[in-house]
C-alpha cells in the first residue's frame, strides 16, 4: 500500500507535520510521497493508495488558501471517489473555539460526500498546546494504521 501525504497549509505548520510524518513512515520502510495540495490534481487520486490529508484552518473556519483550488475542483467536478481511502488530520487553535479545526472537517465532509472512505478518526492538533505538531501527527497515524491492519 502506497501512502500519499497531502498537506494544505497557511502558516507552514501542516507542511512541517507532513514532513515529519513522511520521515517516520519512511523509517518504517513504507513507501511514501508528500505533496502540497496546491500542486496536486484531483485527477491523481487513485484506489491503490492511502491518502493522508493534513489540513489547517484559516480565517473564519475556512480551508487554507493553498488547499482552495483542490477543494473547488472537488466541488465542481464532483468525481466519484468510491474506493478511495484516506485519513484526515486537522490543525487548528482552540483559542478560536467557534472555528477550531473546521478546515479539515470541511474537507472531510466533501471527500465523504463524494464516496471516499475515511480510515480512523480525524486527528486534531491544537496550536494553543505548544506541542510539537509533527509528533502529534505521527502518534495519530500510528493509531490509524493499527485500525487498518485490524480490519484486514
Amino acid at each position: 500500500m502506497k501512502i500519499q501525504v497531502l498537506f494544505g497549509t497557511e502558516s507552514g505548520n501542516a507542511e512541517i507535520a507532513a514532513e515529519d510524518l513522511a520521515e517516520s513512515i519512511r523509517n518504517d520502510n513504507q513507501e511514501v510521497e508528500v505533496h502540497d495540495l496546491s500542486s496536486f490534481s484531483i485527477a491523481e487520486l487513485q484506489h491503490d493508495s492511502l491518502y493522508v490529508f493534513l489540513c489547517s484552518t484559516y480565517g473564519e473556519g475556512e480551508l487554507p488558501n493553498t488547499a482552495l483550488p483542490f477543494y473547488a475542483d472537488l466541488s465542481v467536478v464532483r468525481p466519484d471517489l468510491s474506493g478511495v481511502r484516506y485519513a484526515m488530520f486537522g490543525l487548528g487553535d482552540t483559542f478560536y473555539k467557534d472555528t477550531y479545526g473546521q478546515g479539515a472537517t470541511k474537507l472531510d465532509d466533501k471527500l465523504t460526500e463524494l464516496g471516499a472512505q475515511r480510515t480512523g478518526e480525524i486527528g486534531r492538533y491544537d496550536a494553543s498546546s505548544w506541542e510539537p505538531v509533527g509528533e502529534g501527527a505521527v502518534v495519530w497515524f500510528a493509531g490509524v494504521l493499527e485500525g487498518v491492519s485490524a480490519t484486514r
Binding site: 502558516s11 507552514g12 505548520n13 482552540t94 483559542f95 496550536a127 505538531v133
Partner: peptide, 14 residues
C-alpha cells in the same frame, strides 16, 4: 496574551 500565535516559533526554530 496571544501565546498560540507565538507558537509559530516552534516552526521557525527548526
Amino acid at each position: 496574551d496571544h501565546q498560540s500565535t507565538k507558537s509559530i516559533q516552534a516552526q521557525f526554530s527548526r
